[in-house]
Amino acid sequence: MRPFISAASGALFGLGLLVSGMTDTAKVQGWLDLFGQWDPTLAFVLGGAILPMLLAWRIAARRRAPLLEGTFPAMPEQRLDTRLIGGSALFGLGWALAGFCPGPALAVLGWGGPGAVTFGLAMAGGMVGLQLAQRLLQRRATVTA
């Protein structure tokens, strides 16, 4: 049952991104163009998405476990470190340059043409590259220690 819920959620997420216009990089960049032709659509998308989740977290707080076994995710340790802030800054830069964040980048992968594939591959490459670099650094740290 869990894989079916995952698929249903992924489908609804992808269709929501399509309906909201977030697969259009011009709408996303229009939102970021605060000092030019500003497009407020993204605020409605984010606001609209937060509403059901406000309710969902309240429901989760009253229940012991999710419907299909497992546990609700614990609140992460609230530490504000350079990883969080630096990573978010790099993400913001890339987001502004191309008008894609990870969700919409995946939602256009099947139909957005070569540009969508190029961005998707580069994004996946960045993720894999970071992981490899971290493993390498970790190994060196262990060897030195």
Partner: peptide
């Protein structure tokens, strides 16, 4: 456009709520 934004946003939030309440997972792409 903002109406589509709001409707699409509610769908995105609904997808995240479904994943959280049924599977106990965070929807993070």
């Amino acid at each position: 456009d903002w109406i589509f934004g709001l409707i699409g946003g509610l769908m995105i939030g609904g997808a995240a709520a479904l994943l959280l309440l049924a599977n106990g997972r965070i929807l993070g792409a």
